[in-house]
């Protein structure tokens, strides 16, 4: 006897129909790396499992005009092996390489990572600094939201019961091509992040033209650090500025203490990770920047 009903639709529209009918009684299954442990821990209330892994429409990484499109079923390893992401959007591949381990990366998807909405969702961090757009559909509606507006709280997103993610998009802009991601975990693989930071930066004449900073495991959801961003914008890069920005980052994050690290360490380390990521990018943008 199965405890759940299982459906494996072939098209996105079928999924939307089922969602429309079942609402919160349905649970989408992608890579299953969160869903199965949750079933085991009896944390899933839904009764219908919609396995979307056979839907070709939801897979793949493409260039679309001036945008990059990622299907929600893109696996973490595909981010590493795709020419499109690995050549130009290193911030994504860096995060992917630090994600879980090579086996989990074969099945875990970026859609699943975003919807899980864990504060430690590693792929959300670079997607935040890429200013990604989440494409959401239901039978009622199609909408697009900025990823920074997607998360509501730990495990909570703006997705309605009848909605699903059908794509993720970001621009092929200069700032998006100049990103850096760093993760600190308890060990070098299979580690849930203690803290992560991603930075995307565009410098013009030694001045910060555009900057996006995001951080993981230091707030109830993955977050953009917009305060630090606006502090830095249009400023000339020098050591003092960086030091001040580190303080801003540390002020802006809202970490908690848990078994992996204390609030204070997370605050400290997010500033440090910001510094390291920023310097890497700034160093390669402007050669005169010292230390």
């Amino acid at each position: 006897m199965s405890l759940f009903k299982y459906i494996s639709p072939k098209t996105k529209d079928e999924v939307l129909e089922i969602l429309q009918k079942e609402k919160s009684n349905a649970c989408i299954v992608a890579g299953c790396s969160n869903v199965l442990p949750n079933i085991r821990d009896k944390e899933i209330k839904a009764k219908v499992l919609i396995d979307i892994t056979n839907i070709e429409q939801l897979k793949g990484i493409y260039q679309k005009e001036d945008k990059i499109f990622l299907g929600p079923l893109t696996t973490i390893n595909e981010l590493i092996y795709s020419d499109i992401t690995s050549k130009e959007y290193k911030v994504l591949t860096q995060a992917a390489q630090e994600f879980a381990d090579p086996l989990v990366r074969n099945t875990a998807t970026i859609g699943g990572n975003l919807v899980t909405a864990s504060p430690a969702a590693d792929i959300a961090i670079p997607l935040l600094t890429l200013d990604a757009l989440i494409k959401i559909e239901s039978t009622r509606d199609k909408r697009e939201v900025k990823l920074k507006d997607f998360f509501v709280g730990p495990g909570e997103t703006i997705l309605q019961d009848d909605e699903m993610i059908v794509g993720i998009e970001f621009e092929q802009s200069d700032v998006n091509k100049n990103g850096y991601f760093i993760k600190i975990g308890q060990r070098k693989a299979m580690a849930i992040s203690i803290a992560t930071v991603a930075v995307n930066l565009e410098v013009r004449q030694n001045k910060i033209n555009q900057i996006r900073i995001a951080a993981g495991s230091v707030a109830p959801t993955p977050v953009r650090l917009t305060g630090a961003e606006s502090f830095l914008k249009n400023k000339e890069i020098n050591d003092k500025l960086v030091e001040e920005a580190i303080d801003r980052v540390r002020e802006e994050v809202k970490p908690i203490s848990d078994i992996r690290a204390s609030e204070e360490y997370r605050r400290y380390i997010s500033g440090l990770l910001f510094k390291r990521a920023f310097k890497k990018l700034a160093d390669s943008s402007i050669h005169q920047f010292t230390n």
Binding site: Q186, R187, A189, M190, A191
Partner: peptide, 26 residues
């Protein structure tokens, strides 16, 4: 890295994502 954290008698690290042992990469 290893520690079974027991707070007031309650085990806080009851899985391999909480009780951390070295992987090959470490």
């Amino acid at each position: 890295m290893e520690e079974v954290i027991i707070e007031k008698g309650i085990t806080m690290t009851p899985s391999f994502s909480e009780y951390i042992i070295p992987t090959a990469a470490d």
